[in-house]
Design a protein around this nucleic acid. Structure first.
Length: 106
DNA sequence: TATTTGACCAAGA
DNA sequence: ATCTTGGCCAAAT
């Protein structure tokens, strides 16, 4: 069960389907919080590497954000899932975005 | 207990 | 279209 902030983040992120993404902000919002940065911290500190698809969490500006194993690797993974990225930026973020509402339900 | 540190975000002197 | 700035929150120091 998830009781702390970090675990809640991991739970939500696990729901993101392949080929879609969400943002640090949406995750925070889904937790009724404004702790966007704290979400990033959760990813960085305890990536739960292969278990949680933390590469599907990007910045709300469309930029990729960081990744424990390197941003380049993150981009590759996203591309592999069919997401278009150019100049380190997601082309049509809206199209792939999973909203906080969608994260909340279930 | 207080301060520092981020895989952030929105607005714009 | 970029860069800077001030504000956000939870964990770690």
């Amino acid at each position: 069960m998830s009781k702390n902030f970090f675990d809640k983040c991991y739970n939500l992120i696990s729901k993101i389907p392949k080929g879609k993404v969400t943002t640090y902000k949406e995750v925070a919002t889904a937790l009724n919080s404004k702790g966007y940065r704290a979400v990033g911290n959760a990813m960085n500190k305890n990536p739960n590497a292969p278990i949680v698809p933390c590469h599907r969490v990007v910045a709300s500006t469309g930029k990729i954000g960081g990744y424990a194993f390197g941003t380049k690797k993150k981009i590759e993974l996203l591309r592999k899932e069919g997401i278009k990225i150019e100049e380190g930026r997601i082309q049509d973020l809206k199209k792939y975005l999973v909203s906080s509402k969608e994260l909340k339900r279930r």
